[in-house]
Write a protein that binds this DNA or RNA. Structure first.
Length: 214
DNA sequence: CGCCAGGGCATCA
DNA sequence: TGATGCCATGGC
């Protein structure tokens, strides 16, 4: 039942928006940096900060870990919460510099997720974004947009419940997970206001289906 | 000027 | 488990 719904939403979004090439980055570590910086911030700000870090030759775990935190603060200031983010970035960089990113990313998916969650500044969404977009392992990312859209359609749940719902309704496929999450974000950004859903044709479509079915 | 952005954490009930 | 306040800059 709900498994079909998950697939149908994907097909609808894909037809409406088309394929996206999301989260372009030169290295997996750059993706990790992006997951922290993008928290509660627009991606255009993150691009500036990433570029600034690269210009300062800090886009490597060892170099970022050894940098002055004040310098990192200035480079990521445009992303907001810059004092927290600078310290958290440095902590994570230190972790990867010590453990070796290849070693960490070759761990089993669930183990990797747990380790990422143990880092300060890494919650459910950021951990899953790292697992999926940096380590290329199948974990479906749930964000505020996903929660909002599903609630509009009539399905509520906490993070893990929604993640289980999506993963149960889809083949365990990394490119699919990546694109689906990207489609949800792109759709919601343009069509779903925080309060009103009047322009949300996706919601209308599935509400009609629901009415017709029962 | 007010609102919100691809969250997470400490604190409290 | 769930709700609340806080972190903070930038764009519209």
């Amino acid at each position: 039942m709900q498994n079909e719904l998950v697939s149908e939403i994907y097909e609808t979004l894909l037809g409406k928006i088309g394929h996206l090439h999301w989260w372009p980055a030169d290295t997996p570590f750059e993706v990790v940096v992006g997951t922290i910086l993008t928290q509660q911030t627009k991606w255009t700000n993150v691009e500036k900060a990433i570029e600034a870090l690269k210009m300062s030759d800090l886009m490597e775990p060892e170099k970022l870990a050894d940098a002055d935190v004040e310098q990192i603060e200035e480079l990521v200031r445009c992303c907001g919460f810059y004092r927290q983010k600078a310290r958290r970035l440095q902590d994570i960089a230190g972790f990867f510099a010590t453990e070796g990113m290849d070693n960490i990313f070759s761990l089993p998916t669930d183990e990797l997720r747990k380790i990422m969650l143990s880092l300060k500044g890494v919650g459910n969404e950021t951990a899953d974004s790292i697992v999926l977009y940096a380590a290329d392992k199948p974990k479906f990312v749930i964000d505020a947009y996903t929660t909002r859209i599903m609630k509009c359609i009539g399905i509520e749940g906490n993070y893990m419940q929604l993640q289980s719902l999506f993963e149960a309704g889809l083949p365990s496929d990394v490119p699919l997970y990546k694109e689906y999450h990207a489609l949800i974000v792109e759709y919601a950004k343009n069509y779903c206001g925080k309060k009103q859903c009047e322009d949300c044709t996706l919601v209308h479509r599935f509400r009609e289906k629901e009415v017709n079915n029962g």
